[in-house]
Design a protein around this nucleic acid. Structure first.
Lengths: 360, 360
DNA sequence: CTGAAAGCGCTTACAG
DNA sequence: CTGAAAGCGCTTACAG
């Protein structure tokens, strides 16, 4: 495609010295006008600005960062979603993580920060070194769920500012998450008390996800407390993806296991897979089995029937993650806390409600 | 949420000097083992590695970049998609741009580069300064369609390596795009000759998109050459979004304008909006109006009927964009060329084919 | 208001 | 194989 091994790019490496020479001032003055200081007097300022414009000078970010001890870059690390071959939903929809990242970016721009995005594959044995690599290029890190083991997060957090999203709290980082237990309890009571479903199950997400654990426990406890039977069989283990939800249904039915009257899924993607698998077998939602999700991704309301789910405050989660990280970076906040944002139960039709009035 | 104005973050700013002291060697040796050089002898190497591990040392990327004259970061700038209020498809689906970015990231990781992502809003008057800001933080830039005016791209390309995706060729940058004209001509002939549609129209994308212009021209020319009438009325102006496609249909019908027998849309999103608007009015695709798209985003095959479209080589587009940028950065390639990747006509049902055999 | 100079944390010829 | 030292391109006290 081109000349290999040819001389290095000849993009004239302009520096502040070139600008200073062109403007007939010192580099200190150039730096001052570049940074919008008040002192350079009008005439000096204009000469510098003219030189900058004429030369098309772009200050080197690395040099600025080194001098300022601030890169104005935050790293965002996420798990690369790998389709499981069953459904391509994960690959096609903007998921929870994408939605959060969008908000993070907007918040970051507001403070002059840019986002360094890095994804690690599920099987990535190199996750640790790679994340260390990005850590060196940023002022702080936002780590999505399960990109690093808690002990690694701990270590990393001692050396740089880190905010985890739906992660494990650590003394040196801050975790930002939605309120899992509150909404899950409310959901369990809604299913058992208001709809009167006698048997329920929680279709789990990844076993090593703190959010998943919290949801499972709150749901089961509240369901049992409300008088229902909660099926805790291992078939109800999913993986936060549509394929995992579908597989669980298939496995349960193949085992001749009676389905619970209501299934609360670990997230919306799982619910999506469950609903497809149910439809394939001719089972109706909510008449035969009531289904609920978690997150309220945009696709949730377009399912048939519309999915009852628990809404996470996606915008706030993203904004807060950046905000907290920024405070950590500037030293305005000390780590070691967890920020829990409120969630809300959104009643649509998949739980048995009629979708308009909220109850059958 | 925290103590404002408290002392700056006390994350012990470890440097290579600390590691050197801990290991009892010089900073040169530390640097060498950190960079995997062969020379430090086994014992030295191990002492350094131990010190690095114990201290949890993470080398500063800015300092490395300054010294190496290489940041190992590429910037990706895209237009933030803003829903138009009519449909939320743009906000829910992983679009063409997102799919490309995924591939860019994977390719970048293969070379030890990370991605600095920045989005500019449509109305952003600050696009230029912001992009200059990210340029300073990267070794080179990948610019998606319409983030910068051609003249600005030109200027920027004189100071840093830039690859445009579906942009305007410039002497100092390289443009990577799919073959618009070839596939569009093939599509026009398919519609006019094979299906025998007498009237056609091209529902345009943004007027300032080079891809759009090329598609419009190739389609109209080929359609007319094949003997059809091509409706070039201004109502057929969309905006690459579902809402724009729907609005065009509404406007045409409101004006009492007879719809052409086939409408080739500027991209799949537009086709999606068109199909919805048509369905709302009780018109059938392809029986009443044949519809086609461009891109072949994942959602295309799930439409009813499945969308006939022109597939762009998305993976290759992303990989190539990074690859070319990398060569530009290392000086292995000189700018001033355009790379055109092949596209393919994918016949599904929205054009009138039966979807399985390819023709009615 | 302006400039000379030190320093940010690395890498790498250059000597030894 | 190893270390002392210069240099990467900025910013910012410190003098003037």
């Amino acid at each position: 495609m081109g000349t290999e091994e040819s001389p290095p790019a000849n993009r004239t490496g302009l520096t502040i010295y070139d600008v200073a020479r062109a403007a007939g001032v010192s580099i200190a003055s150039v730096s001052r006008v570049l940074n919008g200081r008040a002192n350079p007097r009008r005439e000096t300022r204009e000469r510098v600005q003219r030189a900058v414009a004429e030369l098309g000078f772009v200050p080197d970010g690395a040099a600025r960062a080194l001098s300022n001890r601030l890169k104005e870059v935050v790293g965002v690390v996420l798990r690369r979603v790998v389709g499981d071959g069953m459904f391509t939903d994960e690959e096609e929809n903007l998921l929870f993580v994408d939605l959060i990242n969008r908000e993070v970016e907007i918040a970051a721009h507001g403070r002059g920060f840019d986002l360094l995005m890095s994804s690690v594959a599920v099987t990535d044995r190199m996750a640790r070194p790679r994340i260390a690599g990005v850590a060196g290029k940023c002022d702080g890190l936002i780590l999505h769920d399960r990109v690093l083991a808690p002990s690694d997060i701990s270590r990393l957090a001692m050396r740089t500012s880190v905010v985890t999203l739906a992660g494990t709290p650590t003394p040196d980082s801050v975790n930002v998450r939605g309120d899992n237990a509150g909404a899950m309890r409310e959901l369990a009571r809604h299913l058992v008390v208001e709809h009167g479903y006698p048997t329920v199950a929680y279709l789990a997400g990844h076993a090593d996800s703190p959010d998943n654990l919290a949801r499972a426990e709150a749901f089961a406890d509240a369901a049992v407390a409300a008088g229902a039977t909660c099926d805790r069989d291992p078939v109800w283990q999913g993986n936060y993806m549509a394929g995992g939800g579908a597989a669980a249904i298939r496995a349960a039915m193949a085992a001749g296991r009676p389905l619970p009257r209501a299934i609360a899924c670990a997230n919306d993607q799982t619910a999506l897979g469950v609903m497809r698998a149910l439809a394939e077998r001719g089972l109706r939602v909510p008449e035969d089995v009531a289904i609920t999700g978690f997150d309220d991704i945009p696709a949730a309301r377009h399912l048939h029937p519309p999915l009852t789910t628990i809404r996470q405050p996606i915008r706030q989660l993203g904004t807060t993650a950046f905000d907290v990280l920024h405070r950590l970076i500037t030293g305005a906040l000390r780590p070691g806390l967890e920020i829990v944002l409120p969630t809300t139960l959104v009643l649509r039709e998949s739980c048995g409600c009629d979708g308009t009035k909220g109850m059958p």
